[in-house]
């Protein structure tokens, strides 16, 4: 920080902020808890797993790029509904989304994750890491699954997840921000609200620290995704150019 004092906020302000962010999260979370129950946590059958595994890498990459892009569109909508986000300059809105939207998708993934079976909701059913073998990046896939399992073990409520997502998105240390101080103030307020909610929910002392550790894990996953994409693009430039969603290419520089 540049030494500016923390914004003055009352408990009521923090409650109000927490409620607003939570509402935005629920409105834009793509899958509601109730809907997920209805999917009855059906896993892919062995034949279906084999069918994903036998797809050409280009087809599986395209499918995953489409699914990620769909999820990102909901994150953009989440950002737009966070109090103060649309008051930032447009450069900074873009910078924050470019750097943070995939991180929020990864955070949200724990809502769709079955820790006991090590499966995630994907393309209509629950999939284990083996479903993604054709991508040719087993190490990244298993790191993403490990991250999700770790997030699940924190057993965050939707309110906590919403505020953590907002705080990830409003990271004031992203490169190329023009009005860093504005973003910093928003992030500080969001983190205070998160802390307030964690205390209200009688979380153990270390809960906030555990979440802070997740931030560095997220950054490393996003860097690894970029590296894998670069390697894939080097082999299949035409697939990326003609078949990948334009928003995905815009965000990840493909």
């Amino acid at each position: 920080s540049d030494g500016d004092p923390l914004p003055t906020v009352s408990m009521e302000d923090l409650d109000h902020l927490a409620q607003g962010v939570s509402k935005s999260h629920l409105e834009t979370c793509q899958y509601l808890g109730a809907e997920l129950q209805q999917t009855s946590w059906q896993n892919f059958l062995q034949d279906e797993v084999k069918s994903y595994q036998s797809k050409p890498a280009e087809v599986m990459w395209q499918l995953c790029a489409v699914k990620i892009t769909e999820a990102i569109q909901y994150v953009v909508e989440f950002a737009k509904r966070i109090d103060g986000f649309m008051d930032l300059c447009q450069n900074d809105q873009i910078v924050l989304l470019k750097a943070g939207s995939l991180e929020v998708v990864l955070v949200r993934m724990c809502r769709l994750f079955d820790s006991q079976k090590n499966t995630v909701y994907f393309d209509g059913k629950f999939a284990g890491p083996d479903v993604f073998r054709a991508l040719g990046c087993d190490d990244l896939v298993s790191a993403v699954f490990d991250f999700s399992r770790g997030m699940c073990s924190l057993r965050l409520t939707e309110d906590e997840l919403a505020l953590f997502s907002a705080s990830v998105l409003l990271s004031a240390d992203r490169s190329w921000l023009q009005e860093k101080l504005q973003v910093e103030k928003l992030q500080q307020k969001t983190q205070l609200a998160l802390q307030h909610v964690l205390q209200k929910n009688q979380r153990e002392e270390g809960a906030l620290n555990k979440l802070r550790c997740k931030v560095s894990a997220l950054r490393s996953l996003v860097i690894r995704h970029s590296e894998k994409l670069s390697a894939f693009r080097a082999l299949h430039p035409d697939t990326v150019r003609t078949l990948f969603p334009p928003l995905y290419k815009e965000l990840f520089g493909a």
Binding site: Q73, E77, I94, K98, L247, E250
Partner: peptide, 20 residues
Amino acid sequence: KEKHKILHQLLQNSTSPVDL
């Protein structure tokens, strides 16, 4: 701006292209 045309559009749209 041209480089982030779609993000700009999504940010400016009052409704999202996805069915919320």
